[in-house]
Simulated assay, not measured.
Amino acid sequence: MSTEPPIVHKPEGPPRVPGQRAVRPKNAATVMIIRRDAAKPRVLMGKRHGGHSFMPDRWVFPGGRIDRADYRAPYATDLRPEVGGLFDRHLPVGRGRALALAAIRETWEEAGLMLAKPGEARATGPWKDFAAQGFLPDLEALDVIARAITPPAVAKRFDTWFLMADAERLTSLDRQADCGELEEIAWVDFDEAMGLPLPAVTRMMIKEAALRMDDPSRPKPFLRYKDREQGMRPTQL
């Protein structure tokens, strides 16, 4: 049991209708892609469209929820054993890989960048355009840094795994022009990122990433809400 005090802040997102049961969180993943080719590390971030009901106009990392196609998508490299093992300790077998694939797919769809290696395989659904580029996902590039579950007080909830990858694992730093639902894309250092309008959990993950630069072996936090008063209580994965 964690002895750390709860982190209290206003839950973000449309509120749950009073009297209704809490919504079951959807499985999702997002990835922090880090560039180290300047004086300070920089992270890839994008601005969500103002019309979204969930976190409008906020800057986030690329990512999204699992699609059923992510369970059967081809890949060039698999998760590292320690990463796959961590997923399997907390999730049904196969879901961790699907989450990692979802993060890579969403990075392609939202930011036009590919964490991938050359390869050919038949793919369908949302993976068809990805595979058509002559690349397949590079799951080996990913590490887990944290997990967070959206509070019960909101109507849209996600059980999100936060991943990290080095930008050197991208096929190119040049992105496609159409970057989907993210209005703007930018590489920002951690100090610059903290000055952007961020969701609270994104702000926490930037701080976590900065700490992991100095200590890659630090425990990986698992952030869950009890209720509005108790706030988000961190434990460890």
Rank of each mutant, 00 (worst) to 15 (best):
V8E: 02
P25Q: 07
P25Y: 11
K26T: 07
K26M: 06
A28P: 09
M32Q: 08
I33M: 07
I34V: 15
R36N: 13
A38V: 04
A38Q: 15
P41V: 14
R42S: 12
G46S: 05
H52T: 06
H52C: 02
S53H: 01
W59H: 06
V60W: 09
F61D: 11
P62V: 03
G64I: 06
I66P: 09
I66M: 08
D67A: 09
R68M: 01
A69Y: 11
A69V: 04
D70F: 07
D70N: 01
Y71S: 11
A73P: 05
P74L: 11
Y75W: 14
A76H: 04
P81W: 06
V83S: 00
G84Q: 01
L86N: 07
R89F: 02
R95P: 00
R97T: 11
L99C: 08
A100V: 05
A102C: 07
I104F: 11
W108I: 04
E109S: 11
L113G: 02
A116T: 05
P118L: 13
R122H: 09
A123Y: 09
A123R: 00
K128V: 01
D129M: 08
F130H: 04
A131S: 13
G134H: 03
L139M: 12
E140A: 13
A141R: 12
L142C: 12
D143F: 00
I145H: 10
A148F: 04
A153Q: 13
A153F: 02
A155W: 07
R157Y: 10
D159V: 11
M164D: 03
D166V: 01
R169G: 08
S172A: 15
L173G: 03
R175L: 04
R175I: 02
A177M: 10
D178K: 15
D178R: 14
G180V: 04
L182I: 06
E183R: 13
A186D: 14
D189V: 09
D189M: 03
F190Q: 01
P197M: 09
P199L: 04
V201E: 12
M205C: 01
E208R: 08
E208P: 00
A209G: 06
M213N: 11
D215T: 14
R218I: 15
K220H: 15
P221M: 10
P221S: 10
F222W: 14
L223D: 06
Y225S: 13
K226E: 14
Q230H: 14
G231M: 11
M232Y: 05
T235K: 06
T235A: 08
Q236C: 07
